[in-house]
Amino acid sequence: MKLHHIRDVSAVAETGSLRAAGRLLGITQPAISRSIRDIENDLGAPLFERHVNGVCLTPIGQAFLRRAEVIQSEMRRARDEVDQLKGNFVGQASMAMSSGAAIALTSRIVRSFRRKYPKALLRMRQDFFQPVERSIKSGEIDFYLGAYDQALSSTSLSVEHIADNQRVIIARAGHPLGNARSIGELRSAQWIRPSLANRPDETAFEEIFVRAGLPRPDIVLHTTSTIMTILAIADSDLLSFLPVQWLESPLIKSFVQAIPIADVTFACPPLCIVRRSDLPLTPVAQHLYDLARNAAMNYAMDRKVPAEPTALQGCAAVLAE
């Protein structure tokens, strides 16, 4: 088995086609077909199932790909680390952030990183932890910063708690319910439910109304996009419950407002920073990790929750998801 075999299996799995994988890698289809056949013969097992629309991984192929992704990531890191130890600060570093962390921290992270390593590639992804967990474990992503359910902790991951989180109810500027102070005043509202870090969070929101003796909220829109949620709020009377950092963005705060409900709070998983525990980062990736961690801790300290906050003050004081 050679490294190009691993590369070819990854390309075919990504594209779902031998021809498309060949185009991606700049080699002919017969060459990549021969490569896949060689490695399947070497392993004594099929990695792909052939069908009329292309190919898909077999269960053995899926297991092989998980290992292959780790090998590819470690080879990239090895090259990057050697270059960086020689004083050539090139290569790449990567991180994922949840939406609130991205809004609060992206500009200061990018600015500081680019100042230190102008020739390195910085890769950033906005997502929750579960969709990026595999990429962290394979080494494709160096670490994650954002809302994290600590019940998901794994022995292969290092998890550091940064701050507790809450959300706030957000409406368009000038909303007729903008001065509401209790959840009961919102009983007639219609809601956008954004995708949250986990399903229990979505259920917990509805239970707030039930515990207050109110009907379940009238949820008329479910989104998976930050942009879609903000556009829908800004152009309608729909409400949503979102990280308070959304109110801090210069691009957003001019056309949305918080509704300062005082009788309930909207908790969410704490802000954490998560990385693999069994392997050191490259020097450039370690700098990015330290920079992001310090930025998040400073942000949380600047907005430290007072002893007995109101719901809105509590939301404004901590870093939400």
Rank of each mutant, 00 (worst) to 15 (best):
K2W: 06
H4E: 14
H4N: 05
H4R: 10
H5T: 10
R7A: 12
V9T: 12
V12L: 07
L18S: 03
L18N: 03
L24C: 03
L25P: 06
P30Y: 10
I32F: 13
I32L: 14
R34L: 14
S35K: 01
S35G: 05
S35Q: 03
I39H: 03
E40C: 04
N41S: 12
V52A: 09
C56R: 15
L57K: 02
P59M: 04
I60T: 14
F64V: 14
L65K: 04
E69S: 13
V70S: 15
S73H: 13
S73E: 11
S73Y: 12
E74W: 14
A78R: 13
R79A: 10
R79M: 09
D80Y: 15
D83V: 05
K86A: 14
V90I: 15
V90A: 06
V90R: 13
Q92R: 12
A93I: 00
S98G: 14
A102T: 03
L105S: 05
V110I: 15
R114P: 01
R115P: 01
R115D: 08
Y117A: 06
Y117I: 03
Y117W: 14
P118Q: 11
L122P: 06
F128V: 07
Q130D: 12
P131T: 05
R134D: 07
I136P: 04
K137T: 11
Y144T: 03
L145S: 08
L145W: 08
Y148G: 05
Q150Y: 06
T155W: 04
L157F: 09
L157N: 06
S158C: 10
E160F: 02
H161K: 13
N165R: 02
Q166K: 03
R167S: 02
G174H: 05
H175R: 09
G178A: 08
E185F: 00
S188K: 10
P194M: 15
S195H: 08
N198L: 10
D201P: 02
D201W: 04
D201I: 07
V210E: 09
R216H: 06
P217L: 12
D218T: 09
D218V: 10
H222W: 02
I227T: 12
L231P: 01
F241G: 04
L251K: 15
V256T: 13
A258W: 01
A262Y: 01
F266R: 00
C272S: 15
C272I: 08
V274E: 06
R276D: 08
D278W: 12
L279K: 13
L281D: 00
T282Y: 00
A285W: 00
H287I: 00
L288E: 03
L288T: 02
L291T: 11
A292N: 03
N298M: 08
N298H: 14
D302R: 11
K304S: 13
V305R: 15
V305P: 07
T310R: 05
A316W: 07
A316D: 04
A320L: 05
